[in-house]
Simulated assay, not measured.
Amino acid sequence: MSVASNQWHVGIVGYGEVGKILAEDLRKDGVRVSAYDIKLGDASGDAMRDHAAGIGVTLAASHAELASQADFIISAVTASQAVPVAQACADAVKPGAWFLDFNSASPGAKQRAADLIDGAGGRYVEGAVMTSVPPYRIKVPLLLGGAGARELAPLLNDLGFAAKPASDKLGVASATKMCRSIMIKGMEAMVIEAFTTARAYGVEDAVLASLKETFPGIDWEKQGAYFFQRVIEHGRRRAEEVREVAETVREAGLTPWSAQGTAERQAFIADLADEGLFGARGAKDFARSPDWRIEADRILAKKKKK
């Protein structure tokens, strides 16, 4: 497309935490932004509409409406929806429009999504977000993959992104992300399981002291609190991501024992959060405890009641 990237009409599919952050940063630079989220029709829709109105984002009525208008589409949904979103946008995507798949999906899922978008005349590029988005916002380290990765990277960076082409081969960027997630999301699950179990036996101080001796560069109290709160707040999305991680392991010909367990632990915490164990979602005190012991005690008390 001959239009400069800062003149693009950007369409964001998925108006959750990541979508809102990207929209805010793009709008600060005057970029025209539209968004669509399937949750606009449920109880969370009012908050999305208020946020969009506050920063000047236009909300579309459907995937197709958004895709028909956008020069550049960002798909930022849960991992299981990566291919369905590509399917929903493909029928209406503008010829030559870019489609950046921001989702934590397996290389195989990215290939299926690419076939849909490219087959409809769009230009699919996979994006692998390499760390948590909130601290970095639009500048989060982003690996790009696919035939258009090298062309899209400078255009994205003109918009404020920190994108770097990883490979012209589709799947390399997502494989990098997925393998990293085996470790990172696995550590979250292990810390929650180990710390909560240690709390049940009253040996948490001894366990943390031993961890500090072995890994002196990590503040385990602070790291534990951070892991607990991130999983409490985002466990559902993390569980979906790690199921894609498990699929990535399967695509490599291995059995994903660790990834499967991580997904179950993440989903377990998400279920408790949905039940209100950690407070009401949206409340100021939800997922904000500086002491992981408080959350571990809630989990243990819940299990004892059963």
Rank of each mutant, 00 (worst) to 15 (best):
A4E: 14
N6R: 15
H9C: 09
V10Y: 08
G11M: 11
V13K: 05
Y15S: 01
G16D: 10
V18I: 13
L22D: 05
E24W: 13
D25S: 12
L26K: 08
S34G: 10
Y36T: 04
I38D: 02
I38S: 03
L40R: 13
S44G: 13
M48L: 09
A52G: 01
G56E: 09
V57C: 04
A60L: 03
S62C: 06
H63C: 10
H63Y: 15
L66R: 14
S68A: 15
A70I: 02
A70M: 09
I73Q: 11
I74R: 00
V77C: 06
V77L: 02
T78G: 08
A79D: 06
A79K: 12
V83T: 14
V83N: 02
A88D: 11
D91Q: 12
V93C: 10
L100P: 00
D101L: 05
S106F: 07
S106H: 07
A109E: 11
K110Y: 07
Q111M: 12
A114D: 02
L116R: 07
G122L: 12
Y124P: 09
Y124H: 10
M130I: 02
V133P: 00
P135Q: 05
Y136E: 03
R137M: 05
R137K: 09
P141S: 06
P141T: 00
L142M: 10
G146W: 04
A153D: 13
A153F: 14
L155V: 12
G160E: 08
P165H: 00
A166T: 12
K169P: 00
S174Y: 11
S174N: 13
A175R: 05
T176I: 00
M178V: 07
C179I: 12
K185Y: 06
M190E: 02
V191C: 11
I192Y: 05
A194M: 15
A194G: 15
R199Y: 08
Y201Q: 14
G202L: 05
V207A: 09
S210F: 02
G217P: 06
G217Y: 09
E221C: 01
Y226M: 13
F227C: 07
R230L: 13
E233I: 05
E233K: 11
H234Y: 07
R237N: 06
R238D: 15
A239H: 03
A239P: 04
E240L: 11
E240D: 12
V242F: 15
A246H: 03
A246N: 09
E247V: 12
E251W: 10
A252M: 13
T255E: 12
P256A: 14
W257V: 15
S258M: 15
Q260D: 13
G261H: 01
T262R: 10
Q266I: 03
F268V: 06
D274A: 03
E275H: 12
L277H: 12
L277N: 10
F278K: 08
G279D: 01
A283M: 04
K284S: 13
W292S: 04
I294C: 11
I294W: 09
E295N: 15
A296R: 01
R298W: 06
R298F: 07
A301V: 08
K302I: 02
K302Q: 13
K306S: 09
